[in-house]
Design a protein around this nucleic acid. Structure first.
Lengths: 255, 255
DNA sequence: AATTGACCTTAACGTTACGGTAAGCTTTAT
DNA sequence: ATAAAGCTTACCGTAACGTTAAGGTCAATT
């Protein structure tokens, strides 16, 4: 498949000006120039542009990207695997920032009293990639010894366990609060609503995009799907229905 | 608490130069200037800087941020709630990009044959926020009618269900493959390793940062924690142990 | 055959959000 | 007392394009 400059731009979501600039600085040359002087791009250029955008997304400057892609030992597969790690890091950082926003909201609403100034800046972007890491690639492990790297990995592992632990704690809290709420018999009451709120927070751990509609939809699924119903009914008979009602009220689907 | 320019910079992770620039363009003025001409920042400025960085993270230009923050009707709480949504959108986009990288890796390794050019550019950043949305805020709902908004939300809900469905399918696949693998009795065999790989992919749905160490750690937890052990042993007696062994081999923790 | 409108070209200047450096004053630590 | 660290203004430099101007090309329609 061959592309003119605008077609490629539309495909990749960048402007034609950007592609001309990339030509100008020599980071992405067209496959050929046709008789009218038009830039024509081919398959190799599509893939190279994809690589460029992967690095750009990680905040690497174009000059560095050029050097990386043109280096004699460039290994696309290894690079992609590194990308994956970096993107996952980025996602983790986003989670931190989202937690920051949530805590700030709680703070504004008076539900959290101890928010330090330094906490207010957790999760904002730092440079994800440092040049050395890009340049020396796999050698860093040999250079600094596996110990350092393993220590770093262990730290991540600890964080994961901690995160998992928090999620478990939250899940337990949902169950406990649900049980107490059911004793009151009122899904609209304070405890019922607290259950729904806890449930939302638990969801947010794994769910990407929270919306009220989705939350309510899931609540209904809890009732319809026997596997879920069975899980929640461990808490008590009719717990799935009670939880659904509480969530419907919480999300405004029922009054 | 009062801060000098460098202190505030360190707190927030920005340079002193940046803060001077913010002063210059009038987006963040110091609380006062001391006798030596030094900029001194107070509590209000800390919070305002936090707001500025929230918007900056979403790609809003400084001029727009200034207008937003200085608008008469600015409501910090509402703004934060909108931020939360946007960040969640961003996270979803990151998930798309990660999926893109993974698919490209599969493609390079010959495990996926049908990757179209347009697929190669899924997930790269577009402008997350458009000006109108920022300016008119809540009015958009009234303006275009709830119908439009609800339709959009419904679409998200559908995507969620789909995503959930895929995850469920994968989980089922893990169980099925695990059962077959156990019949062979060899965790290091093809089926055993396929189980471990499927398990990794299933994990990646909910886990932010995959590392071999964490994967292996979790596998051990499956054995140690009776709740998990019980779940997997539904597949067959000793399934948790078999899965752990397969994962240990897969992650290189055992030969 | 002519026209229209979408597309392409080069060339040049403009913009955003700072980084870097110079030249000099102030505060803090030793 | 002196050096190091931190502060000031002022100015120049930059990356990655956006924008506009002035003009050539292509496909479809009249």
């Amino acid at each position: 498949m061959e592309y003119t400059i605008k077609k490629l731009g539309q495909l990749a979501g960048v402007s034609a000006r950007t592609l001309r600039y990339y030509d100008e600085i020599g980071i992405l040359l067209p496959a050929r120039i046709n008789s009218a002087g038009y830039r024509i791009y081919g398959q190799a250029e599509v893939d190279r542009l994809q690589d460029i955008l992967f690095y750009r997304e990680l905040g690497v400057c174009l000059d560095d990207i050029k050097n990386i892609l043109d280096a004699p030992g460039y290994n696309r597969l290894a690079a992609l695997q590194k990308h994956q790690e970096k993107l996952v890091d980025k996602k983790k950082q986003l989670d931190l920032l989202i937690a920051n926003v949530e805590k700030t909201i709680d703070y504004l609403q008076g539900r959290t009293f101890n928010m330090s100034d330094s906490e207010k800046f957790i999760g904002f972007k730092k440079n994800l990639i440092n040049k050395n890491e890009l340049k020396y690639g796999g050698e860093i492990r040999a250079k600094y010894g596996d110990q350092t790297v393993d220590k770093a990995n262990q730290k991540i592992l600890l964080m994961k366990e901690e995160q998992y632990g928090e999620m478990e704690k939250l899940r337990q809290e949902v169950n406990d609060t649900l049980k107490m709420a059911m004793a009151t018999g009122d899904p609209a009451g304070e405890l019922g609503q607290k259950t729904a709120d806890l449930h939302r927070r638990w969801l947010s751990f794994t769910w990407a995009g929270y919306t009220k509609e989705a939350h309510a939809g899931l609540a209904q699924m809890y009732v319809d799907d026997e596997r879920f119903a069975a899980y929640y009914d461990q808490v008590g008979a009719g717990a799935a229905i009670f939880l659904r009602d509480a969530i419907f009220i919480y999300t405004g689907f029922m009054k």
